[in-house]
């Protein structure tokens, strides 16, 4: 009898999410019924599209890779009560830095150069987010606002480099030169764009769990996040944990950007990482900041994205309709996740 109770408890706990999902999907169906002249086909592709062939399926997983990294980045910051709203800029900077390093070493060994490029992206992202942590420690400025402002400025700067000094005039797109092909990450699911970095993403998530729950820093970080006064009382270096989680969060964002270049785009196109930062926040919210749950949450986001793309391709769903439908789902689910998150905050406060 007690076993039974446990299962029901789980269902109740997930009930909020399931209800929201159902409502979101219902709204999608209604929207499509209203806006599409071949609704059955549209709905079919919207929901089943990502699974109808290897290509779509692999692409969906590929889209989830950077989201796993950014989602983890947000989650680790959240667990220590730090809010990183600068994900967009950090990811974009990571993408540019990786590209620049690869362009700068056109002949280097793929592994050595690639790893260097990724490390540079990690450092870049970490630096940008770390700044906000530093300002918070030094002057108590809210990292939420400062990270957002810094990120906005960074986006401008990256755009300047892409359209200015690094612009490839022989390419008709707004983009830098392409990196050479020894840096390309291995494709593991042709013909889709899915590359080997998904393995890295999963490993990173597992490492994050290990880090947060088994290591000294993870423990201190969580304690500082859960109760700052308690941590101070217990002799933890509370101010260090204003910077460190931000560094880590920024590093993961930079990594997301770098991997996107080496795995998918091979050149830093304008707005190449657009949306990865914001969606990372939503992913982390849905995952309730649990690093392992970030993986399904990111895949879910990618699923919605892939569904919209499939519906656009195979039915009369237009770009605008797809965008509306996508945002309805995103907003509903994010709002629900945010709601439970805030409720949880309130209870623990």
């Amino acid at each position: 009898m007690i076993r039974l109770k446990k299962t029901s408890e789980i269902i109740i706990n997930s009930a909020g999410l399931i209800i929201t999902l159902t409502v979101a999907f219902l709204i999608v169906v209604i929207l499509i019924l209203l806006l599409s002249s071949e609704p059955v086909k549209s709905i079919y592709y919207f929901f089943a599209g990502p699974f109808i062939n290897k290509y779509y399926f692999g692409n969906m997983l590929n889209v989830s890779i950077p989201l796993i990294f950014t989602g983890l980045g947000i989650a680790v910051a959240f667990t220590s009560a730090n809010f990183n709203l600068g994900g967009e800029g950090q990811t974009y900077a990571g993408a540019l830095i990786t590209t620049v390093v690869c362009l700068w070493l056109p002949q280097a060994n793929g592994y050595v150069g690639g790893i260097l490029a990724i490390i540079a992206a990690i450092i870049g992202g970490a630096f940008l987010a770390g700044l906000s942590g530093y300002f918070k420690m030094k002057w108590g400025t809210s990292e939420l606002i400062s990270s957002f402002l810094i990120s906005s400025a960074v986006i401008f700067i990256v755009n300047y480099f892409i359209t200015g000094p690094l612009d490839d005039p022989s390419n008709n797109l707004l983009t830098t030169y392409a990196i050479s092909d020894q840096y390309f990450l291995m494709k593991i699911f042709p013909p889709s764009r899915l590359d080997i970095s998904i393995v890295l993403a999963v490993i990173t998530a597992i490492l994050m769990v290990f880090f947060l729950f088994r290591t000294h820093w993870g423990y201190e970080m969580r304690m500082c996040g859960l109760n700052r006064e308690f941590s101070r009382y217990g002799g933890l270096n509370v101010s260090a944990y204003m910077i460190f989680p931000m560094l880590l969060s920024g590093a993961l964002h930079g990594l997301a950007g770098g991997i996107s270049i080496l795995g998918t785009y091979y050149m830093c196109l304008k707005d190449v990482t657009a949306g990865m930062g914001w969606n990372g926040i939503a992913v982390a919210l849905i995952a309730k900041n649990n690093p392992l749950a970030v993986i399904p949450a990111a895949v879910f986001f990618a699923y919605i994205d892939a569904g919209a793309k499939a519906a656009m391709l195979h039915s009369d769903v237009t770009f605008e309709i797809a965008a509306i439908v996508q945002s309805v789902i995103f907003y509903l689910i994010t709002a629900q996740a945010l709601y439970t998150f805030l409720k949880y905050r309130k209870r623990t406060a």
Binding site: N227, E229, F230, Y233, G234, T348
Partner: peptide, 17 residues
């Protein structure tokens, strides 16, 4: 507020410092 962290486990509360 100061002496304990309600949201973490009993264990974790026992080892701080």
């Amino acid at each position: 507020r100061r002496g304990s962290c309600l949201t973490s486990s009993v264990k974790e509360n026992m080892i701080i410092s």
